[in-house]
Computed example of a mutant assay.
Amino acid sequence: MANVITATGALGRTARARDALGGWMPFIVIAPSVVASFIYVFVFTAWTLYVSMSNSSLLPTYGFVGLKPYFELWSNQRWSIAYGNLFFFSAFYVILSLAVGLALAIAIDQRVKGEAFWRTIFLYPLAVSFIVTGTVWSWLYSPNAGIEFLVRNLGWHDFTFRLTTSKSTAIFAIIATGVWQSSGFAMALFLAGLRSVDPDLVRAAQIDGAGPARIYRKVILPSIAPIFVAVAVVLLQFAIKTFDLVVALTGGGPGISTTFPAIYVYDLMFQRGQIAIGAAAAIMMLLALAVVLVPYALWTTWRARRGAAHG
């Protein structure tokens, strides 16, 4: 009898240990990634912030100089041009990607023949990296191998198509290429949103005599407004971090006309050996991301709480 009781107790302890381990297992599994993410995001961000207020040059040093690197950064004409280019590019890139993506989504939403084929075609650019996209489009913009070369060989010898060689048009070449790359992403999310709209709302509007344009404007598009915000936020993140697309297309030129903050950070840190100013530029990019992400996070939290309060 004593042996039976001892065995039963051992089995009970084993079961409790197994249950406890099962309860802790999810935390054990995700702990390494959480720790790595914390170090990667918060620790390195704090380190970069401190370096941005140090007298670092070729190698990091830790002599504190306050905001001097930031003043030097903003007094540099190239940084002002880079930040201005970022705002200009972001505005056109986001608006045009949203517009083209929405137009494609509405067209496909009409249950067109070969819908799966068209979805694949429009989504294909999303599967290609920005560096590949930039390289291919740089060939298309090249006067010696691209569209200009092709059209001239067809007989139009006065035709010119040199967007990337002119300071006034190079940034528009980057915008057009970026829109081509990202409009399929916007289309996919918009199409999912259009397909999720309650059909009863559409039928009610049709019964009231509303035409297709009015139905989209008054019923469908307001219903997918959160998707507009989400897509715009993601596209703004793409825009702020733009680096490889510009490097492949123009290299920041002609001159410094298409310099972007990410390119300037790389140049300061790895070409000129000005680590403190480069870190300051990186912090400014982080602030630009925060301006986008923090309001979006607050808005989504407010929306979730509002939805919970209304059942």
Rank of each mutant, 00 (worst) to 15 (best):
Q274N: 13
A279P: 07
V219R: 04
G307N: 13
A248G: 05
R152F: 02
T169R: 01
A248D: 03
G101H: 09
G251T: 05
F130H: 01
G184L: 03
V247S: 07
F87Q: 05
Y70H: 12
V265W: 02
G22L: 15
A2L: 12
F130W: 12
A82E: 01
F228R: 05
Q77K: 11
S142W: 10
T8V: 12
S168G: 12
V43F: 13
G63L: 06
L236S: 11
Q237V: 11
V43S: 01
L140Q: 09
I240L: 08
G193D: 07
W156I: 14
F92H: 11
P226K: 08
A2R: 13
R119Q: 14
F44I: 06
T135I: 03
G211W: 10
L59G: 02
L236Y: 04
G311Y: 04
T177R: 02
I174D: 00
R18D: 03
A107H: 02
V151K: 05
T177M: 05
V291L: 14
L11D: 04
A288E: 01
S57N: 10
G211L: 08
L102D: 07
F172E: 00
L86M: 14
G146P: 11
I220R: 12
P26C: 04
F44N: 06
W24P: 00
R119A: 01
L235G: 00
S80R: 14
A20Y: 10
Y141A: 04
R18L: 11
V65C: 03
F243G: 03
V197W: 04
S33A: 15
K167D: 06
F92R: 07
I5L: 15
I28W: 10
I39Q: 00
S33F: 09
L140M: 15
A82G: 00
A127H: 01
Q110E: 12
F38M: 11
M1Q: 07
A282W: 01
G184I: 02
S138E: 08
L289R: 00
A46I: 09
G22E: 06
K113N: 05
R162Q: 15
A225I: 00
G253M: 04
P222S: 10
G178E: 10
A176T: 13
A173C: 08
L245C: 05
R195L: 13
G66Q: 07
M1H: 06
A173F: 04
A145Y: 10
L235Q: 07
S168E: 14
L236A: 08
A281R: 04
G12Q: 11
Q237K: 08
G23K: 13
